[in-house]
């Protein structure tokens, strides 16, 4: 009997190891919940499981999905980014204004992405260099940059109708909407980043034990800055898709997106304490929220009740997940 006493349940332990990670079981729990609600809605509405509806769900979730990918990285480092909603607002306004002013969609897009990245970097510098709490820093910049968006735009939406700009949110490649392709690309990329790269390894390490990671001689500050900058960049990318889809940028767009993104990350099994989680889980979380919204629209649930139902289902999902994983 060589195995340590602390291995509380050797049999489950073995099973878990064979599958690779603990997260996998957690993810399967959420996949089952996703399947369950999909089945329920397909029974309740014949239009639910049609090609066009599935594509429309994917297009709808692409915006929150892209933001949530960045949020996942931040939360794995045991941080949080509340500023993403405001970045959506400001980056949209900036890119629309620059696109209009220069008559170049490309410049507009670049300016928008740069705005988001710089705001993220700003958050990251305050958090890592001044050792401020992520919650407080990003709460402040959420308010700050929401204000900027209103000031810069004068409070009015800005209409953009550049063809290239339009393509990003409204175009198709083959039968698939362009935003869905971006979404898939982002998730593949960050899945790879977390699993296979050194930066990904450090993201888990920082969240798992920041002190130990610093003592291992890792440039923790730089990796944290990159993570927040990434989150800002992705929020800006989501903003450009949103602006393009609506053909206009609104200074109040994106309000509350941070909460949807965080909800998706948590549904996806990423620990708020850091060190654990992955983007595939988040994608499932995003899809659960998307399927719920779409399904409830199809069966004509009033928007008032939709929020109640969503809140309950998020709670139920998390409780089920807790029960599945209680023994750990």
């Amino acid at each position: 009997m060589e195995s340590s006493v602390k291995v509380e349940k050797p049999n489950t332990q073995l099973k878990v190891d064979r599958l690779g990670t603990l997260d996998l079981i957690q993810k399967y729990g959420m996949v089952m919940i996703l399947l369950l609600i999909t089945i329920v809605f397909s029974i309740l509405s014949p239009n639910f499981l049609t090609y066009s509806n599935i594509v429309s769900i994917l297009r709808q979730v692409s915006i929150i999905g892209i933001i949530a990918a960045g949020q996942t990285l931040v939360i794995i480092t045991a941080g949080i980014d509340l500023s993403v909603g405001s970045i959506v607002a400001l980056a949209g306004i900036v890119s629309a204004m620059v696109a209009l002013g220069t008559e170049s969609a490309l410049l507009g897009i670049t300016a928008g992405l740069l705005t988001g990245t710089l705001i993220g970097l700003f958050n990251g510098i305050l958090i890592s260099k001044l050792k401020l709490t992520p919650f407080i820093v990003t709460l402040a910049s959420m308010t700050l940059f929401a204000g900027f968006a209103l000031v810069v735009s004068g409070g009015n939406p800005i209409i953009v109708s550049e063809p290239l700009f339009k393509f990003i949110g409204q175009g198709y490649i083959g039968p698939i909407p362009f935003p869905v392709i971006v979404l898939m690309f982002i998730y593949l990329f960050f899945f790879f980043l977390l699993k296979k790269t050194v930066h990904g390894q450090y993201i888990y390490s920082i969240g798992g034990n920041e002190k130990a990671t610093i003592l291992a001689g890792v440039k923790v500050d730089i990796h944290k800055m990159i993570v927040y900058a990434t989150s800002g960049f992705l929020a800006a990318l989501a903003s450009i898709i949103l602006t393009s889809r609506l053909s206009s940028a609104s200074p109040v767009a994106g309000a509350g997106y941070e909460l949807d993104a965080i909800a998706a990350v948590i549904l996806g099994g990423t620990s708020l304490f850091g060190g654990r989680g992955n983007v595939l889980g988040t994608l499932i979380g995003v899809l659960i929220l998307g399927v719920l919204t779409s399904g409830m629209n199809l069966i004509n649930v009033s928007p008032f009740y939709q929020n109640i139902a969503k809140g309950i289902i998020v709670l139920v999902a998390v409780i089920i997940d807790r029960l599945i994983n209680r023994d750990k």
């Binding site: 390894q201 888990y204 390490s205 798992g208 034990n209 130990a212 990671t213 060190g275 654990r276």
Partner: peptide, 15 residues
């Protein structure tokens, strides 16, 4: 200060 408790020993050792 020493360990990434949630991670495996391989990840700890190469950090």
């Amino acid at each position: 200060e020493g360990l990434l408790l949630e991670l495996g020993s391989e990840e700890n050792m190469v950090l």
